Computed example of a mutant assay.
Amino acid sequence: MDAQAFPLTWPDTMPRTPNKVASKFKTELSAALKNVRSSLGLFSGDSGKKVDNLVISSNVTLGVERPADPGVAVWFVWDGMQVCIAVDRYAKVEDNLQAIHHIVEARRTEMRHGGLHIVRATFRGFTALPAPKRRSWREIFKVDGTLPTTAAGLESRYRSLAKERHPDSPGGSHDAMTELNQAKSEALKEIGA
Results as ranks from 00 to 15, higher is better:
46 D>M: 12
160 S>N: 06
127 T>C: 07
62 L>E: 14
24 K>Q: 08
14 M>A: 03
171 G>I: 05
7 P>S: 04
164 E>M: 13
73 A>Q: 09
185 S>P: 00
187 A>S: 08
52 D>V: 06
134 R>A: 13
154 L>Y: 01
149 T>P: 01
64 V>S: 04
122 T>G: 12
173 S>V: 06
136 S>P: 03
133 K>S: 07
36 V>I: 07
96 N>Q: 01
193 A>W: 03
31 A>P: 00
83 V>E: 01
171 G>W: 10
42 L>Y: 04
160 S>A: 14
150 T>N: 12
182 Q>N: 14
116 L>F: 15
187 A>M: 09
51 V>N: 07
33 L>R: 14
67 P>A: 10
191 I>M: 04
17 T>P: 04
134 R>P: 00
147 L>K: 15
121 A>W: 03
15 P>E: 10
161 L>T: 14
19 N>K: 09
181 N>R: 13
176 A>G: 05
73 A>L: 08
71 G>V: 03
34 K>R: 14
99 A>G: 03
58 S>R: 10
55 V>L: 07
65 E>M: 10
77 V>D: 15
79 D>P: 04
107 R>L: 11
132 P>W: 06
36 V>G: 07
154 L>D: 00
26 K>V: 11
172 G>Q: 04
183 A>L: 05
9 T>A: 11
156 S>I: 05
172 G>E: 09
29 L>D: 03
139 E>G: 04
118 I>T: 13
64 V>T: 08
169 S>V: 05
136 S>F: 02
129 L>Y: 01
56 I>R: 01
188 L>G: 01
99 A>W: 07
59 N>R: 08
95 D>F: 02
190 E>S: 13
65 E>Q: 11
125 G>F: 02
127 T>I: 06
86 A>P: 08
24 K>M: 04
30 S>H: 12
21 V>F: 03
23 S>G: 15
94 E>C: 13
119 V>Q: 14
51 V>L: 05
121 A>D: 11
72 V>G: 03
124 R>C: 00
114 G>I: 02
143 V>C: 06
34 K>L: 11
181 N>K: 14
3 A>W: 00
1 M>P: 09
63 G>W: 10
28 E>T: 14
137 W>P: 11
175 D>S: 09
174 H>D: 05
148 P>K: 11
76 F>P: 12
78 W>F: 11
183 A>F: 01
85 I>S: 10
53 N>W: 09
22 A>H: 08
109 T>Q: 06
111 M>W: 07
107 R>I: 00
65 E>V: 07
162 A>V: 04
82 Q>G: 05
22 A>V: 08
192 G>C: 05
90 Y>S: 06
149 T>C: 13
60 V>L: 11
88 D>E: 14
41 G>Q: 15
35 N>V: 00
69 D>R: 08
8 L>N: 02
183 A>G: 03
110 E>K: 12
121 A>M: 07
134 R>N: 07
75 W>H: 15
13 T>W: 02
177 M>G: 04
48 G>I: 08
133 K>E: 13
77 V>P: 03
94 E>P: 05
36 V>Q: 06
15 P>H: 03
45 G>T: 12
114 G>K: 14
147 L>H: 06
34 K>Y: 09
87 V>G: 02
119 V>H: 12
137 W>R: 12
47 S>C: 04
